[in-house]
Design a protein around this nucleic acid. Structure first.
Length: 951
DNA sequence: GTTATCACG
DNA sequence: ACGTACGTGATAACT
């Protein structure tokens, strides 16, 4: 006779936990192992005594079950799970996995439904099998039949109790086991919040069912009852029926049953041994594995036997074969089991844990969590802080997750030393090289943790950056990712701390329970997003490389660069501000004189009316689509010789821009903590792969005008021992274009170090190199840029103020002289039309949805993007790789010099004077060799006491 | 929140 | 006949 044992894990764990309530077992590391120990003992006892041939262990899931759908209050008042149990569950699961015992878990169903279904099917399909449901839970009585028995484990002095149909009927005083639910329906069950009928307890229920047979029949014969009891049955008839329904175990759960899956087999001794050591279960270990001390078993124990279908390398067993792939289940496949209360496809999740988000706020709990984290291949984390700006942020909490559906929240005290002590506990986890750290926008977390002296080691995985490489033109917030890929809308941060514009609330003031839920959810979601995004990303091999070898290492570099910051000469800026103020006032006075009235010069609306209506400067003045006069720089420049006011307005605009955007704004962004400026480099904004910079934007500090470039004098070295070093790629985009197009003449010009714009001018204007005038060179330079942007005659004409026909002639001439470039351009556009995207040298994609549009404007725009994106993007790829290499060099050589800025084709350093020469040499070498192109690359280097001098 | 303008590569 | 260079971010005005 075969023996199938089905265990109700949660019921047994609870029972074990409370059995040890007075004298809990604690390991030397503070882990409470009572529940695991109790469960393990019970399990081993039954294995030894009963020698089952088949076995399975069922868990509840944290997901709402159909009973919740039916009855909202179901189990609602059950008190929260003790943390010791929460911590125990993963260990129990590991124990079972190590013993090669299958876990039975199905979202939407409780353990008793799963056990009931399997028990009934096993009995039906196998005459030669006896089924034992191992549980202390009385509800199971309803399932008992000839070959299905309840097996109550020994407890509190009482021995094992095996109950067949006779025993059940005797126990409840009923005629058939099915009436168990009628009894429960009447008496209710306080633990599960099944109400029953008021005034009816076990004894009364027994008596009534003995007499009437069922709840339904009792209600039908309510007239035969008397007094208060009659009243209650009448008034609570519905409640009684519902209670009966709730107590009914559902035996049609959509799980296939295959006896092969549940066959007993050998343990994985290596895993088991490690686990028992960890739990410090010495006696058990001896019983199970003999006397070998820890650490010597792996060589001596033969390879563990594995089940036919249970071989997954991660130790998870594919119990239900195809059903494990539940995400891919077509609805039709589950149609044969339609459940009227099911709103979604049943989901089988072998390792979904029972409870979701846990508060980890004691040393013991932290110890357990850390211990468990250290066993993972990858973990997900999220920091909660007091500020959006990482440099100014204090840790409020840390959320961690290592499997979907479960997360842990560790709150941090406001006291800095206490917080430091807690984060120090987690250091071994963060510094474990074997664990991949997953996070959304991980640069922020890296920066926050670095303030607490935590330098993360091992692989990083940023879901934001993964998505940036999948769809660079989209947005990459976690909320959007969750909605797109998980079909789930997370709790918004605004619900916790209010909008960021208005006096944004403090994370510290949020209730612990709420922040726990919010933070845990973030970690959980991010953890779930990772495999989904990675699966999509993996469709393109180069994307995975790009993420792992460029963007992830770069995010660490950027964290370093941002933390370092830049020193600003505030005294200088203060002086400059005063001068600008004075000049602005003078200019404004002159403008008012010239205009004859006072008005707001900063208002394009007012300004347009003054210029074009009052002064009638340009009779054919152009208007914007909103009906206003255009007063931009290019318009006013053309009026410069018409009227003095145009020049003055341009001056005023420049002064105001410099003052408000730079001179006055920059000092306000100095960190009170470091006294330096810390920009944010945005890694997932620019569609081409470039970085952007904000708060403040240090990538648009003026340089083109004499007054503007003065501002760069305010960017200074950290002290007298340092100087500013600036290294920029020379003509990187043109070189990349020449390489892509394989244009021999242009490649040769670069390889010979010739002036590329002059060379272009000579060719385009058909003169010898020494006949090229500065005007010709200027035009050629503009043309070269224009080519990269996807030239049009109109655009070129506008840019250098020539006629459209003249522009067209120049372009035609360019194509004649550089036919390879023209060929390359058409090839890129063609390939974009075919594939719908273009790629950079490292395979970074840009999708061009309008490339085949009927709308010419949209299509032309897409075509210009097709030309520009691979060039601009490849240059971005190259400087990113260079940054990683340079930072690596600085770190491995332990230099005092630091990278402090990056501006598309330029790297800026705070260079320690004694290191200047080696730094210059290495930076140059690493920049030009970052990515191999079939064209010579060059850099320009400058050193000075400020950023301007370094150019 | 959108528009116009202007700073950079 | 159309409507036009590529990629960003900050500010002030206005709705």
């Amino acid at each position: 006779m075969k023996k199938l044992f089905l265990l109700d894990a949660m019921a047994l764990i609870y029972r074990a936990h409370f059995a040890f309530a007075k004298t809990p077992r604690i390991t030397s590391k503070g882990l409470n192992t009572s529940a695991v120990f109790g469960f393990a003992n019970t399990l081993l006892e039954v294995l030894a005594k009963e020698k089952p041939t088949h076995i399975g262990v069922a868990f509840d899931t944290p997901k709402p079950t159909f009973r919740h759908v039916q009855f909202e209050a179901y189990k609602a008042q059950r008190q929260e799970q003790p943390e010791d149990i929460t911590i125990a569950i993963p260990y129990v699961k590991r124990l079972l996995k190590a013993m090669n015992i299958p876990l039975l878990i199905l979202d939407g169903y409780e353990a008793d439904d799963v056990i009931g279904t399997i028990a009934k099917r096993a009995a039906r399909d196998h005459d030669d099998m006896e089924i034992y449901m191992m549980t202390p839970d009385k509800d199971y009585g309803q399932l008992v039949e000839e070959r299905i028995k309840m097996y109550k484990p020994a407890f509190m002095g009482k021995g094992v109790e095996v109950m067949g149909p006779q025993e059940i009927c005797d126990r409840w005083g009923i005629k058939e086991v099915g009436q168990v639910i009628d009894i429960l329906g009447l008496m209710g069950d306080a633990v599960d919040n099944i109400p029953g009928i008021p005034g009816i307890g076990e004894k009364t229920a027994q008596k009534l069912i003995e007499e009437y047979g069922s709840v339904e029949n009792l209600i039908a014969n309510v007239d035969k009852l008397k007094g208060k009891q009659k009243e209650n049955v009448q008034n609570f008839a519905q409640q009684g029926l519902l209670s009966k329904e709730l107590a009914t175990i559902y035996c049609e759960v959509p799980v296939p049953f295959d006896e092969e899956d549940l066959k007993m087999c050998d343990s994985n001794k290596e895993e088991l041994s490690a686990l028992l050591d960890e739990l410090e279960f010495r006696t058990l270990r001896k019983r199970l594995l003999g006397e070998e001390p820890a650490g010597t078993t792996s060589e001596t124990v033969a390879a563990p036997a594995t089940k036919p279908k249970a071989a997954a390398s991660n130790g998870q067993m594919d119990l239900f074969g195809g059903l494990v792939e539940e995400k891919k289940l077509a609805p039709s496949e589950t149609d044969d089991i339609t459940l009227d209360f099911e709103t979604r496809a049943p989901k089988l999740d072998i390792h979904t844990s029972v409870h979701q988000y846990h508060l980890v706020n004691t040393p013991e709990l932290r110890q357990s969590l850390i211990h468990f984290l250290s066993l993972q291949d990858e973990i997900c984390f999220d920091t909660e802080t007091t500020a959006l700006d990482a440099v100014e942020a204090d840790l409020v909490g840390l959320a961690l997750a290592y499997q979907p559906g479960e997360a842990f929240y560790v709150p941090f005290p406001e006291n800095r030393e206490e917080a430091q002590a807690i984060i120090d506990e987690f250091k071994p986890v963060f510094q474990n090289e074997k664990i991949t750290k997953i996070a959304q926008n991980i640069k922020y977390d890296l920066m926050v943790l670095s303030q607490y002296g935590v330098e993360i080691k091992g692989k990083l995985y940023d879901t934001m950056l993964a998505h940036y490489l999948i769809e660079p033109e989209k947005r990459h917030n976690m909320d959007i990712l969750a909605e797109t890929y998980l079909n789930y809308t997370p709790v918004s941060i605004e619900e916790l701390i209010g909008k960021k514009g208005s006096k944004q609330g403090n994370m510290r003031e949020v209730e612990l329970e709420k922040i726990k839920e919010y933070a845990s959810e973030d970690a959980d979601i991010t953890f779930r997003l990772k495999p989904i995004l990675h699966e999509i990303l993996s469709k393109n091999e180069s994307s995975v490389k790009l993420l792992e070898e460029v963007e992830m290492p770069l995010t660490q570099v950027l964290a370093d660069v941002e933390m370092e910051g830049v020193r600003l000469d505030t005294d200088f800026l203060k002086l400059m501000s005063k001068e600008l103020e004075k000049d602005m006032l003078e200019t404004q006075t002159r403008i008012f004189e010239l205009a004859g009235v006072e008005f707001n010069i900063s208002s394009p609306k007012q300004l347009g009316e003054i210029l074009f209506e009052k002064l009638k400067l340009d009779p054919k003045a152009k208007k914007t689509k909103t009906g206003q006069y255009m007063t931009g720089e290019e318009i006013l420049s053309k009026l410069e010789h018409e009227h003095e006011i145009a020049r003055k307005i341009l001056d005023f605009r420049e002064l105001q821009k410099l003052k408000s955007t730079y001179v006055d704004a920059l000092p306000q962004l100095i960190s009170p903590r470091t006294g330096r400026i810390h920009t944010s480099f945005m890694q997932a904004v620019a569609v081409t792969g470039r970085l952007s910079s904000k708060d403040p934007n240090l990538q648009n500090i003026p340089i083109r005008t004499p007054r503007g470039r003065e501002i760069r004098k305010a960017f200074i070295p950290k002290n007298d021992d340092f100087v500013i070093l600036s290294a920029d790629y020379s003509q990187i985009e043109l070189r990349i274009m020449a390489a892509f197009a394989k244009d021999e003449s242009m490649i040769e010009a670069f390889n010979q170090g010739r002036d590329i714009h002059a060379t272009t001018a000579a060719k385009v204007f058909n003169v010898s190199l020494d006949q090229v005038t500065s005007d010709m060179r200027r035009k050629a330079k503009t043309v070269n840029f224009g080519i990269i942007y996807g030239v049009s005659a109109f655009g070129l004409a506008q840019q250098i103020d020539i006629s459209r026909s003249e522009a067209k002639e120049i372009i035609d001439s360019y194509w004649r002289e550089f036919p390879a470039i023209k060929r390359y351009m058409s090839e890129v556009v063609l390939s974009a039309r075919e594939n719908g995207f273009v790629e950079t040298i490292l395979g970074r994609r840009r999708y061009l949805r309008d490339i085949n549009s009927q709308n010419m404007t949209d299509r032309n725009f897409a075509e210009r993007n097709a030309v520009n994106a691979p060039i601009q993007g490849s240059a971005a790829d190259m400087i990113k790789v260079a940054m990683i290499k340079v930072n690596n060099f600085i770190k491995t050589e332990n230099l005092k010099s630091r990278m402090i800025l990056t501006v598309h084709d330029e790297l800026v350093f705070d260079a320690y004077k004694p290191e200047l020469e080696i730094l210059k040499e290495k930076v140059n070498e690493l920049m030009i060799s970052a990515i191999e192109f079939p064209v010579k690359m060059e850099t320009g280097m400058g050193v000075g006491l400020n950023w301007l001098e370094a150019h």
